[in-house]
Amino acid sequence: MKVGQSQTDVLKLFGPPYASQTNAKGQEEWYYYEVNKHFWQRIPLLGKYLGGEKIEALQIIFESRKVIKVRYYVVPGS
């Protein structure tokens, strides 16, 4: 991702966003998420008691259909 890329470029790379909104400045924000589970959570029956998960998120902000800001962050899960 680079500043200046078009919305079409982003759609080709990532597909449609999981969520989108228009912020107070009139800029369009797109969000992409991926939930990553710890290895131990894959064990049947016990997995829900072991390890944890994290949510990786990508926020892309557009102005005039061009990328002006990209932010990656991780949200701790259960």
Results as ranks from 00 to 15, higher is better:
Gly4Phe: 06
Ala24Glu: 14
Glu53Val: 02
Leu50Gln: 01
Tyr32Asp: 04
Ile55Ala: 01
Met1Gly: 05
Lys48Gly: 10
Pro16Met: 12
Leu46Phe: 05
Gln7Arg: 14
Tyr18Gln: 15
Val74Gln: 06
Gly77Val: 03
Ala57Glu: 04
Trp30Asp: 02
Lys69Tyr: 08
Lys2Met: 15
Lys25Tyr: 14
Leu45Ser: 11
Asp9Asn: 15
Gly15Asp: 01
Ser20Asp: 09
Tyr31Ala: 05
Val70Glu: 05
Met1Cys: 11
Gln7Phe: 10
Glu56Pro: 09
Lys54Cys: 02
Trp30Thr: 00
Thr8Phe: 12
Gln27Arg: 12
Ser78Val: 15
Lys66Ser: 03
Tyr49Ile: 09
Asn36Phe: 11
Tyr32His: 01
Pro17Thr: 02
Val75Arg: 11
Ile55Glu: 01
Tyr73Ser: 07
Leu58Ala: 06
Leu46Asp: 04
Pro17Phe: 02
Pro16Trp: 07
Trp40Arg: 05
Phe62Asp: 04
Phe14Ala: 09
Ile60Ala: 08
Val10Ala: 07
Lys37Phe: 12
Gly47Ile: 02
Gly51Asn: 00
Glu63Thr: 07
Ile61Ser: 13
Trp40Tyr: 06
Pro76Gln: 03
Ile61Met: 10
Ala24Leu: 14
Pro17Gly: 00
Leu11Asp: 04
Lys12Val: 10
Leu58Val: 05
Gly52Tyr: 03
Asp9Arg: 15
Glu63Val: 09
Lys25Val: 10
Lys25Phe: 11
Tyr49Arg: 14
Ala19Arg: 11
Tyr72Asn: 10
Trp30His: 03
Ser64Asp: 15
Gln41Met: 10
Met1Ser: 06
Leu13Ile: 14
Asp9Gly: 10
Arg42Thr: 10
Lys25Asn: 13
